[in-house]
Design a protein around this nucleic acid. Structure first.
Lengths: 213, 213
DNA sequence: AGGTGTTGTGTACGGCGTACACATTCGCGT
DNA sequence: ACGCGAATGTGTACGCCGTACACAACACCT
C-alpha cells in the first residue's frame, strides 16, 4: 500500500476562499484579513490562494459583491417609492454591520453584478415614479450616495474620544459663545446611527427628488 | 577647530512634518505617504518623525484637520441657508480634491478643532432657520453625511473598468430585459461629479429638512 | 564646566503582499 | 492501462511597511 499521505485535491475553490475570507474579516476586522492568516485558516500555504484569486484587491472585490448581494431587492409588486426606500435602507444596514469592509468599499465604486441588478431595480422604480431615465440616474446617484455615506459614517469605528476634556468644554474653548454646539453635543453620539435619523434624511431627499422640476 | 559637521538643530517641527506630509500625499497618493518616504523628504531618519508625531494615525489626524480647516466658514452676515449650502459644498470640494485622504477620513469621525468650528457655524444657521437644537443636530448630521458621502464616492478612484465588455452588454447578460440600465449607464460616469448633481440632492435634502414636521 | 532634557540616529523585529521556480496530482485521449 | 499536459499546492525569497529601544549629539541653564 502506498504510504504517502494523500491530501484531498482541489479542496480549494474561489467560493471557499471567499467564504472563509468573509468570516475572517467579520471576526477579526479589516486588518485581520491578510493573505497569510486566511491561508492558514484554510490549512494551506499563502501562495495557494493566488490560484483562485488574482490578488488581494480581487479578493476584496469578491467580498464587496457578496455584501451587495445581501441587500434584498424588492419584487415587482412592491410600490416604487417603497422599493427605493427599502433598497436604500438595505444598503445602509449591510454597510453598518460589515464595518470591516468600509475601507475597501470606499476605494471601489459599485462594480459587481449584484450592484447592477440593484441599480436596475431602483432605476425602474424611479421611472415608474415619472422620472426620465436621466433623472432617474441622477436620483439613484443621490440616494445611493446618501445610503452609502450614512452607512460609512455611521458604522462603528475608532471612538477614542479624541479631545482632552469634555466636548462642551472644548467647544467653549474654541469659541467662547459656543453654547449652541455645547448643548447639541449631548445628542449626536447616541442618535447618530438611529433609524429615525436615517429616515428623516432619506424622506427629505426623496421628496425633493420627486417633486417639481 | 572642531571638524565635526554641524547639523542645524531643531530643524523639525510638527508643522514642518505636516506640511511635507500634506504635499507628499497629494503628490504620491495614499500609499505614497509612508513614514520612510516622508522622513527621506525631510532629510532625516524615519524614527526622527516620532518625536513630533505619536504614530502614523496621529499624522493622518493632523492632515485631516488641515483638510477641514480649508473649508471656508461663511461670516455671520451670510444668510443661514446659504451658509449651510456653502459649507456643504466646501466639504465636498475639499474631499474631492484630496482623494488620497479619503481612506483616512473614513476611518475617523469628525474630530479636530476645525470640525467643531464648522459644526458651530452650521448648527447656528439651522437654529436661525427655526429648528430646535436637537433638530439642528440631526439636520447637520444628514447634511454632513451627504456632503462627505458625495465627496468620498465622487472622488476619482480606481476606474479600471472592472467588467469584460461594455457596460450595456454586461447589463444585458445579467438581466436580459435590462434596457433601463443599459440606457442609463451612458449618463452616470461623466455627470457623477457635477455640481448640478450635488446641488440637486442637497437642495432636496434641505427642503425636506426645513419644511413641516 | 557640567549636568539635564530634548532631538536625531542606528539597528532590529515582525508583519505584509506577492514573484518565481518547483512538486504533486488529476483528467483525458489513446 | 498508461502516459502526458494542465491544474493545483509548496517553498523560498524580496522589498516594502510601522515602530520599539538603546544610544549619540546638541542646546540651554546654572
Amino acid at each position: 500500500m502506498s504510504s504517502a499521505p494523500r491530501k484531498p485535491r482541489t479542496t480549494l475553490t474561489r467560493e471557499r476562499v471567499l467564504d472563509e475570507a468573509w468570516e475572517l474579516i467579520r471576526a477579526e476586522g479589516t486588518d485581520g484579513l491578510s493573505m497569510r492568516a486566511l491561508s492558514q485558516r484554510l490549512g494551506v500555504v499563502p501562495m495557494a490562494l493566488y490560484r483562485h484569486v488574482h490578488d488581494k484587491d480581487d479578493l476584496l472585490d469578491g467580498l464587496l459583491d457578496r455584501l451587495t448581494a445581501r441587500v434584498p431587492i424588492p419584487g415587482p409588486r412592491v410600490a416604487p417609492r417603497t422599493a427605493v426606500e427599502r433598497v436604500a435602507r438595505g444598503i445602509r444596514d449591510e454597510v453598518v454591520d460589515n464595518p470591516a469592509l468600509v475601507p475597501a468599499l470606499v476605494l471601489r465604486p459599485s462594480l459587481g453584478p449584484s450592484a447592477y441588478r440593484m441599480g436596475e431595480r431602483v432605476l425602474g422604480a424611479f421611472v415608474q415614479l415619472g422620472l426620465t431615465v436621466d433623472d432617474a440616474t441622477r436620483a439613484w446617484n443621490a440616494v445611493s450616495i446618501y445610503a452609502l455615506g450614512f452607512g460609512v459614517f455611521a458604522a462603528p469605528r475608532r471612538v477614542d474620544g479624541g479631545f482632552p476634556g469634555s466636548l462642551g468644554a472644548f467647544a467653549e474653548r474654541v469659541t467662547p459663545e459656543a453654547d449652541t454646539l455645547a448643548a447639541a453635543s449631548e445628542v449626536d453620539r447616541t442618535e447618530w446611527v438611529s433609524d429615525a435619523q436615517f429616515d428623516l434624511g432619506l424622506r427629505a431627499l426623496l421628496d425633493g427628488l420627486l417633486t417639481a422640476r
